[in-house]
Amino acid sequence: MNYDQAVLQTFLDQQLQLLPEKIAYDLEEADAFLSDCFAVVVKNIKEVQQYFEDEGLDISQMSLADLEQAQEVFKIADGRYLIVET
Rank of each mutant, 00 (worst) to 15 (best):
L8A: 06
K22H: 14
V7H: 01
Q15I: 11
D54K: 10
K22R: 15
D66R: 06
D31H: 13
A77R: 13
G79E: 05
L67H: 04
M62G: 00
F74V: 05
Y25V: 08
Q69E: 14
S35V: 08
V40G: 00
K75N: 08
K46C: 08
L18K: 03
A77Y: 12
Q9K: 15
G56V: 12
Q49C: 07
Y51A: 01
L57T: 03
K75L: 12
N44Y: 10
C37A: 15
L19Q: 11
M1L: 13
Q17R: 14
F74S: 01
A70N: 02
L64C: 04
N44R: 06
D66T: 10
E53A: 05
F33P: 00
S60C: 03
L82Y: 03
Y3D: 05
A70R: 02
Q15R: 09
M62R: 04
E29W: 06
D54S: 08
D4T: 11
Y81C: 02
V48W: 05
G56M: 07
T10D: 00
D36K: 14
D54E: 15
D31K: 14
L16N: 12
A24R: 01
E72L: 04
P20V: 13
K46G: 05
Q61H: 13
Y3E: 07
L57F: 14
E72G: 02
Q5A: 14
N2Y: 14
A70L: 07
D31N: 14
F38P: 00
E29M: 14
D13A: 14
K46R: 13
L82S: 01
V40M: 04
Y81W: 05
A70P: 00
F52Y: 15
A24P: 00
V40L: 06
G79P: 02
D26F: 08
